[in-house]
Amino acid sequence: MKWIYGLLLSIGIICGCASGQQDNALPVKQAEKADTRIEEKQPPSEVKSVSQKQIGAETFNELIESFHEFNYASYLNQEKEEIKEALGEPEDEGWFEGGEYMQYGDFTFFFHPVTEKGISVAVETTNKTFDQEKAEDILGSVDRSFWNEMDNMWSEVYEFEDGTITFEKESEEAEHPSYIWFESSK
Rank of each mutant, 00 (worst) to 15 (best):
D162I: 01
T108F: 05
G163I: 00
F130K: 00
W95F: 07
I64A: 06
E79V: 12
E32G: 00
S184P: 05
V28N: 04
G118Q: 02
R144D: 06
E168Q: 11
K169M: 11
E175F: 06
K2Q: 13
V47N: 04
V50I: 14
T108D: 08
S171G: 04
L139E: 00
Y179L: 11
L9G: 12
K117G: 04
D151S: 12
K117D: 05
N152A: 12
A135N: 01
A174Y: 01
A25I: 12
M153L: 12
N24Y: 13
E133T: 12
S184V: 03
A57V: 00
G16S: 15
K53Q: 13
G118Y: 01
E39L: 13
S10V: 15
R144F: 10
Q21P: 10
Q52C: 02
R144I: 08
I165L: 02
A34Y: 07
K169R: 07
L8F: 13
G16Q: 09
P44Q: 14
E161L: 10
T108K: 05
K186D: 07
F146R: 13
A122T: 09
E62G: 00
F160E: 03
S19P: 01
E173G: 04
P44L: 13
I38A: 09
T36G: 04
L139G: 00
Q54L: 15
Y179W: 13
I11C: 10
F67K: 02
P44Y: 09
D137F: 09
L26T: 07
K117L: 06
V142G: 02
S120E: 09
E116P: 03
E159Y: 10
V114M: 14
Y101I: 11
M153G: 03
Y179F: 14
E91Q: 12
G6S: 13
E156G: 06
G94D: 05
E39Y: 11
S145D: 13
L76P: 00
K2S: 14
E82G: 08
E58A: 14
S171P: 07
W3C: 03
W181K: 04
G140R: 01
K41A: 11
K53G: 00
W181M: 05
I55R: 15
E175A: 09
N127K: 11
A73F: 03
E172W: 08
N127Y: 14
Y158F: 12
M1C: 06
K2P: 10
D131S: 04
G16T: 15
L139A: 01
I55N: 15
G94S: 04
N152F: 02
S185K: 13
V142M: 02
S45H: 04
S74A: 14
F60D: 09
G88F: 09
Q22N: 11
K80I: 14
Q42W: 10
L76D: 01
I14N: 11
K33Q: 08
T166G: 00
W181N: 06
T36M: 07
R37Y: 07
D151G: 11
E46S: 14
E62S: 11
Q21D: 05
K41N: 09
L63R: 08
C17Y: 11
S171A: 06
Q22E: 08
D151V: 07
S49F: 04
W154Q: 02
T126R: 15
R144C: 02
S184A: 13
N152Y: 03
E39K: 15
S66P: 07
E40M: 15
I38G: 06
F167G: 00
F96R: 11
V50W: 08
E58F: 12
